[in-house]
Design a protein around this nucleic acid. Structure first.
Lengths: 181, 181
DNA sequence: TCTCAGTTTCAGTAATTACTGAAAATTCGG
DNA sequence: CCGAATTTTCAGTAATTACTGAAACTGAGA
């Protein structure tokens, strides 16, 4: 399992970026390795290619599977588990966004609602600020949900349409309430 | 500088979420405190409210300013520096997204382009995978750039339009190339 | 220009997170 | 159901990151 220079640089980059992406170095490297590999790899191959311990590989794969970014694959005639990334890049991106939303946004949205439930406590400014933040997050997550429901083909069409979208909306007519709450 | 229960819970939550958001606990707490405060606070007030060291406050504020999430504010008649978060939540969100893109996506886009520059090295699968990833990131960042350029009012209109956008595009006509590359 | 309130820097230390090897658990062919 | 192959868990340790106090620096008023 010797890596080509291309693999090496890619794997190293994902390792470095890992900490910024909220995963650790080896998890990033494992993902990178699987991403570039046309055939599924088993844990020993990953362990050897990255020069890490077998247990570290096991933990890394576990985390990546919990994210839905890596899939187990049984190869016939081999007792060992093998692993891949999904072929479809769009699926990967959808998964990534969904998981990050789940971990980074949803808990805060819940907390904000919970705080509002506790009713007014006298600090009008803080309460308004919290309500405003909650509304903003709701608007963005609802938009995200709508977009996530679209098939990829429509999503691509929409994204390629880019800034012209705004003009389009103008034309259709603005029956919507104004911006400021 | 005693915090109300509302402040406390909010600050604590931001502290806990900090690590998921790629900042540390105290940076999250400082931000939370400033976010809920109607008047700008000085470093000593922050230090006392959070029970952290003066130097920690200084470093946290420095980081938040580098993100553009916290602004210095000189109060007349007081020699101390004061700090606030921008009033406009949309501005805050725009800043957040822009900065995270800068830190988490742009370096990878550069790296991918760099790897492609190095020319074919024989691993067709890996090279195709990298090219596909680069194209995907380009499409998404270009879309983001388009959206970021819109005034907030239009952005709100667009987001509220949600899933109906897809139908809209259909109607206007699909002159665009098909999805699969 | 000197003073001093205020701020930043930084070396040392504490706290957290990542990684390892060994042992326990699981899985599957026989 | 047994036993070898494989995977997972976990306590201990290494590496990294966060935090502190003290010292250095800054800049406005006298």
């Amino acid at each position: 399992m010797k890596m080509t220079p291309l693999h090496q640089e890619f794997v190293l980059h994902f390792g470095e970026m890992g900490s910024r992406w909220g995963i650790n170095r080896t998890v990033g490297q494992i993902y990178a390795l699987l991403f570039l590999s046309s055939a599924p790899l088993n844990a020993d191959q990953i362990t050897e290619a990255l020069g890490i311990s077998r247990s570290n590989t096991s933990m890394g794969l576990k985390e990546l599977q919990s994210w839905g970014l890596v899939l187990r694959k049984h190869l016939p005639g081999d007792r060992k588990e093998h692993f891949t990334t999904p072929d479809d890049l769009w699926l990967i991106v959808r998964t990534l966004i969904e998981e990050r939303k789940k971990r980074e946004i949803d808990p805060t949205l819940s907390k904000l609602r919970e705080l509002e439930m506790q009713g007014p406590g006298g600090d009008d400014y803080a309460e308004a600020r919290i309500a405003e933040l909650r509304e903003m997050i709701e608007m963005m997550t609802e938009f995200y949900d709508d977009m996530a429901r679209l098939e990829t083909e429509k999503l691509v069409r929409l994204m390629t349409y880019g800034s012209r979208l705004a003009g389009l909306i103008d034309k259709v007519g603005g029956y919507l309430p104004s911006t400021k709450s």
